[in-house]
């Protein structure tokens, strides 16, 4: 297994339309990302809140770069800021692929770097980790 690499970035949503439309779009993004990332062995967390994305990608460097390039060419966001990039010892997000929270979640949106200029990678990373639980809850809420 080659060395593990991690990238954490924030970006700004460029999708327009009502919150329902944006939410549907994000579901599509999540579905495709889950597939791609599982195939490429690049699990990672994505949160969307209040107009901003934050995502972490982890895996072999080539795979992370390939996934990152794919994301960079996506028109649905802009102003991408990399908060952290470099080698890691172990995966923090090994068992799950994507998390999502809608913009209605005010507790989360208040914690996200709204302007996407935050240099505080640790905070975003901690936030992403905390969302793991939220994702399962969110899925359960949608199923019920």
């Amino acid at each position: 297994m080659s060395a593990l690499y991690q990238v954490l970035y924030c970006s700004r949503n460029r999708m327009s339309g009502g919150s329902k439309l944006v939410s549907d779009n994000i579901e599509t993004i999540l579905a495709i990302s889950r597939q791609n990332n599982a195939r490429d062995q690049v699990p990672g967390g994505l949160i969307f809140s209040d107009g901003c994305f934050a995502q972490v990608l982890e895996g072999p460097m080539d795979a992370v770069v390939a996934a990152f390039e794919r994301i960079q060419c996506d028109e649905r966001h802009s102003e991408v800021i990399v908060l952290r990039s470099g080698p890691i010892q172990a995966r923090s997000f090994a068992d799950w692929s994507m998390a999502f929270t809608g913009s209605s979640d005010t507790t989360l949106s208040s914690q996200l770097p709204i302007s996407a200029v935050s240099e505080d990678g640790d905070a975003v990373l901690a936030l992403l980790k905390s969302v793991v639980v939220r994702e399962t809850e969110w899925l359960r809420r949608r199923v019920n």
């Binding site: 690499y5 990238v7 960079q72 991408v80 990039s85 470099g86």
Partner: peptide, 8 residues
């Protein structure tokens, strides 16, 4: 103009 990851 978006960031790149090259050779780490």
């Amino acid at each position: 103009s978006r960031p790149y990851l090259v050779d780490g």
